[in-house]
Computed example of a mutant assay.
Amino acid sequence: MRVALSAVLLSLMSLTACAGTDHAAAPSAEKSLILATTTSTQDSGLLDELLPDFTADTGWRVKPLAVGSGQAIELGRRGEADVLLVHSPEAELEFVAEGTAGGRRLVMHNDFVLVGPPDDPAGIRGVPVAEAMRRIATAESGFVSRGDESGTHARETQLWEEITPSGRWYRSTGQGMGATLRVASETSAHTLTDRATYLSQRANLMLEVLNEGDKALLNVYHVIEMTKRAGDRVQPDGAKAFADWIVGPRAQRMIGEFGTEEPLFVPDAGKDESTLGN
């Protein structure tokens, strides 16, 4: 009996030791970072593709907060995010100049497209994007804006140029790209969208790409590391780990291969940004 009991105790001690080893090998609670990013990286499915591999490679777990680029930058400003993945270049440069952020690096690009009803009620196919926006406003053809200070909303505002859209034909959702596309589809209206989110949801939308290819529609993403200057809760080590990984060879290859029908993003780490879209 004593021999048998000793054997059981030894077995339990062995299992406990093994469990402790497994726990030590897993990412710890301390190695957890907050990524503030855009709804387009979430709605396209890119985050689901990248984040498990980042955790496997580095041991850092990621809590993504998918919001508009403006909101993501504000989270960084308040020290409530460790690293940002955003696509609002002018706002990013202003933010970095404030001095609380660290490095800002080029990650990837795709493009924005104007989508709308297949019958093209405003006649915007094949014209420069500025003319397309003017025709939509002149015809008062329905347009749905995100209206959420996102990178997409910022680009839409730039594209209107001298036009101030208003009236029943123009509405804001205050929501992400996926939700805004659904509203545009349901109301037979136009909207500006990143191509990746549109392609990932196209099967469920009554919308077609009506205007594309203009250099003003280039959509560029950067990763921005936060520093302790933004707040004591910021984890610069985690921010650097993510930034280094997403511009590294494995992540860049995954970005370039992401998409079933066609690649949804173009990996750009190490490129001269001024050459993009040429």
Rank of each mutant, 00 (worst) to 15 (best):
S6Y: 04
S6C: 10
L10P: 01
L12K: 13
D22S: 10
H23V: 10
A24M: 07
A26W: 12
A29H: 01
K31P: 00
S32F: 05
T39M: 12
Q42G: 15
G45D: 14
L47E: 04
D48R: 11
E49R: 10
E49P: 04
P52A: 03
T55G: 03
W60Q: 00
W60A: 00
L65V: 13
L65K: 12
G68W: 10
G70I: 12
I73E: 02
L85S: 13
L85D: 10
S88F: 09
P89D: 09
L93H: 14
L93Q: 15
A97G: 15
E98H: 07
A101I: 03
A101G: 02
L106N: 03
M108P: 00
V113W: 08
V115Q: 07
I124Q: 06
G126T: 08
E131P: 09
A132I: 08
I136V: 15
A137M: 03
T138Q: 15
S141P: 02
F143A: 10
V144T: 09
D148Q: 01
G151E: 10
H153M: 05
R155M: 12
E156W: 08
T157F: 05
W160G: 02
P165E: 06
W169T: 02
S172D: 06
T180H: 04
L181Y: 04
L199S: 09
A203T: 12
M206V: 02
M206E: 12
L207S: 04
E208F: 02
L210D: 15
G213N: 13
A216I: 03
A216H: 12
L218D: 06
I224H: 01
M226E: 00
K228T: 13
A230D: 00
G238T: 05
A241R: 04
F242A: 01
F242H: 01
F242V: 00
G248R: 08
G248L: 11
M254L: 13
E257A: 14
G259C: 07
G259P: 08
L264A: 03
V266L: 09
K271H: 12
E273A: 11
S274C: 11
T275L: 15
